[in-house]
Amino acid sequence: MELIPKLPVAEWISDATDWLTDTFEFLFDFVKNDFGDFIEFFAESLLMQIPIWLFIAVVAVLAFFVSKKRIGLPVFVIFGLWFIQNQELWEELMNTFTLVIFASLISVIIGVPFGIWMAKNKVVETLLTPVLDFMQTMPAFVYLIPAVAFFSIGMVPGVFASVIFATPPTVRFTNLGIRQVSHELIEASDAFGTTGAQKLFKVQLPMAKKTIMAGINQTVMLALSMVVIASMIGAKGLGQTVITGLQRADVGTGFVAGLGIVILAIIIDRFTQNLNTQRGDQS
């Protein structure tokens, strides 16, 4: 045991991060500034400018159609959002919503292609599987450190950390969905002379849609679960209110903000789940 001195793993990682920070400074700065501005614009100049009653009405109507004209979800939307507004947490809600939207979108944009690559290539699958396991089991707090190193504080590092944490399910489920397509259907596709792309877009992806959507649902939920953690590095929103409650030992404030997150989670979850119906399903 004594023969081997403590390996300087921590130093290596730190050095690597420093090197990355220096080398890609121009890129990180660009993302931090321009992308940061865009996020702020989206939250403050778009979402927050919509009159609250109109926002609630639109979401409620969408909920009505998304849930196949059932009344439960729209009623929940109206009461839930009204409650958040009543607690004077509307701006926080819009910020949190923005964070979740951007983190989820980026996760999906990155995750689906990787999932496809994994499904089409055995070697990639073998290499990526442990990486994905690692990404999901590493405590989410750890991602805050490089996020701050690259992007300092604010929304952008929050999105960055959330993306790392939330992407794996989309990759996994895309891979799974494509691999689940039965051998006979792949043969049928090949027998009619499809190119790789035709097979992917006409057979594999449509048939994997349900599974991929289940993965995306998980990704969105994970992004939402990062909200409080991300607020520790300055991401605005309901998470910050929770942290404030913690710092002041103010149970009430923390609880109300937490309730707001739960309401948002339920709405997003029902939306993504109800959107997930496949053509030709027997039900």
Binding site: L185, A188, M207, R279
Partner: peptide, 8 residues
């Protein structure tokens, strides 16, 4: 087993 595409 027919090999039809269920989503079409």
């Amino acid at each position: 087993r027919f090999g039809l595409f269920p989503h079409r």
